[in-house]
Amino acid sequence: MGRDELLKTKYPILLVHGMGYWDESPRPYWGRLPAFLRAHGVAVYFGGQDAWGAVPGNARRVALSLRDALRETGQPRAHLIAHSKGGLEARYLISTLGLGGCVASLTMLSTPNRGAPLAELLLRLHPGVELWSVAAEAHARRHGDRDPAVLRAGREITREAIVRFNRENPDDARVYYQSWGAELADSRTDPLMAASHAVLRPLVGETDGLVAPESAKWGVYRGTLHGVSHQELVDSMGRDTPRFRPLSFYAELVRGLRGLEG
Results as ranks from 00 to 15, higher is better:
residue 101 G to M: 05
residue 170 P to Q: 07
residue 212 A to I: 09
residue 202 P to I: 00
residue 78 A to F: 11
residue 220 V to C: 07
residue 213 P to Q: 10
residue 89 E to N: 01
residue 83 H to M: 07
residue 38 R to A: 08
residue 222 R to W: 08
residue 94 I to P: 05
residue 19 M to W: 14
residue 136 A to H: 09
residue 159 R to Y: 05
residue 14 L to M: 13
residue 34 P to C: 03
residue 235 D to W: 11
residue 239 R to I: 00
residue 161 A to I: 00
residue 173 A to G: 11
residue 82 A to H: 08
residue 186 D to K: 12
residue 19 M to I: 10
residue 79 H to Q: 06
residue 15 L to Y: 14
residue 53 G to D: 01
residue 230 H to A: 03
residue 40 H to R: 15
residue 107 T to R: 02
residue 247 L to T: 09
residue 18 G to F: 03
residue 19 M to D: 03
residue 187 S to W: 14
residue 124 R to Y: 10
residue 90 A to D: 01
residue 129 V to E: 12
residue 191 P to F: 05
residue 143 H to L: 12
residue 37 L to V: 02
residue 250 Y to K: 09
residue 133 S to W: 13
residue 85 K to H: 02
residue 166 N to M: 08
residue 36 F to K: 13
residue 63 A to S: 15
residue 185 A to W: 13
residue 182 A to T: 02
residue 58 N to V: 03
residue 156 E to D: 05
residue 69 A to I: 14
residue 32 R to P: 13
residue 43 A to M: 07
residue 155 R to D: 02
residue 243 R to N: 07
residue 69 A to V: 12
residue 91 R to C: 00
residue 81 I to P: 08
residue 172 D to S: 10
residue 37 L to A: 04
residue 126 H to D: 15
residue 195 A to T: 04
residue 208 D to A: 11
residue 259 G to N: 13
residue 64 L to K: 15
residue 172 D to E: 02
residue 215 S to P: 09
residue 110 S to I: 01
residue 4 D to R: 14
residue 26 P to E: 10
residue 100 G to H: 09
residue 174 R to E: 13
residue 254 V to T: 04
residue 119 A to P: 01
residue 57 G to F: 06
residue 57 G to P: 01
residue 218 W to Y: 14
residue 18 G to Y: 11
residue 171 D to C: 09
residue 69 A to E: 12
residue 125 L to H: 13
residue 48 G to M: 03
residue 80 L to G: 06
residue 94 I to Y: 12
residue 130 E to T: 11
residue 241 T to K: 12
residue 136 A to G: 07
residue 29 Y to T: 15
residue 15 L to Q: 04
residue 225 L to S: 04
residue 258 R to I: 09
residue 256 G to E: 04
residue 86 G to Y: 07
residue 203 L to R: 11
residue 95 S to Q: 05
residue 257 L to N: 09
residue 200 L to H: 12
residue 193 M to S: 07
residue 46 F to M: 14
residue 257 L to P: 06
residue 88 L to C: 02
residue 92 Y to T: 01
residue 55 V to D: 00
residue 254 V to D: 11
residue 176 Y to V: 12
residue 95 S to L: 03
residue 84 S to W: 01
residue 82 A to I: 07
residue 145 D to P: 09
residue 11 Y to P: 00
residue 34 P to M: 08
residue 117 P to C: 01
residue 139 H to I: 09
residue 115 G to Q: 04
residue 152 R to F: 02
residue 170 P to K: 07
residue 164 R to Y: 03
residue 28 P to S: 13
residue 163 V to A: 07
residue 57 G to A: 04
residue 258 R to Q: 14
residue 159 R to W: 04
residue 149 A to F: 05
residue 62 V to P: 01
residue 67 R to P: 03
residue 41 G to Y: 12
residue 173 A to P: 14
residue 21 Y to H: 14
residue 79 H to P: 00
residue 56 P to R: 05
residue 65 S to Q: 14
residue 114 R to H: 02
residue 202 P to Q: 11
residue 144 G to D: 12
residue 31 G to I: 04
residue 51 A to F: 11
residue 76 P to V: 06
residue 149 A to W: 06
residue 55 V to L: 10
residue 168 E to D: 07
residue 242 P to R: 06
residue 92 Y to G: 02
residue 175 V to L: 08
residue 3 R to E: 15
residue 174 R to P: 05
residue 105 S to Y: 09
